[in-house]
Amino acid sequence: MICKRLSLVDEARHWWRLWTIRFYALIGLAVPPVVNHPEIVTSLVAYVPAYWRPAAVSAAAIIVFAICPAVLRLLKQRLPDAR
């Protein structure tokens, strides 16, 4: 059974205190306004020169979805009993 093989991190009981969870919650809150008003993105893209746009998009995606969560997970985080 999958449940018996599934092993969670020690801090899983305190999932709401993990910075990665908070970071992705903020990302989730930022998506609906961008979807409802795509001109937000297009107005920001206008500041980036056309020849830099592919690199800028790739760098932004790597930073937001790979580097930031990894760094946040590596940071020492305080749990409720460790005040």
Rank of each mutant, 00 (worst) to 15 (best):
R17M: 13
H37W: 11
R22L: 11
G28H: 03
N36D: 10
D10N: 09
V9Y: 07
V71Y: 01
V31H: 07
W16Y: 08
W15Q: 07
P32S: 01
G28I: 03
C3G: 00
A46M: 08
P69C: 11
R22P: 08
V64G: 11
Y24I: 00
W19L: 10
R73H: 09
I27G: 04
P32G: 01
P38E: 13
Q77P: 00
F23D: 00
V34H: 11
L44R: 07
Y47R: 09
N36S: 06
A66W: 12
R5N: 09
A60K: 03
A46L: 09
L79N: 02
M1Y: 07
L44W: 13
L6I: 04
L26T: 11
V57G: 12
V41T: 12
A50M: 04
N36R: 14
C3Y: 05
A82I: 04
L8Q: 05
I63Y: 08
A50P: 00
W16I: 10
R83E: 04
V71L: 12
P54T: 09
L8T: 06
K4V: 00
L74F: 12
V9I: 05
L79S: 08
A46N: 07
D81H: 14
S58R: 07
R78G: 04
R17W: 12
S58M: 13
C68R: 00
A30R: 06
R73C: 06
E39H: 10
R5V: 01
V45R: 02
R53I: 14
L6E: 00
K4F: 02
Y24E: 00
Y51A: 12
I40T: 02
V41Q: 08
R78I: 06
Y51W: 12
T20A: 03
D81A: 13
K76G: 07
L8I: 03
M1V: 09
A70I: 04
V35W: 15
A12T: 06
V57S: 06
I2D: 15
I2Y: 14
A59E: 02
K4D: 03
G28S: 03
C68K: 00
D81M: 10
D81V: 05
V31C: 12
P32V: 00
C68M: 07
S58E: 02
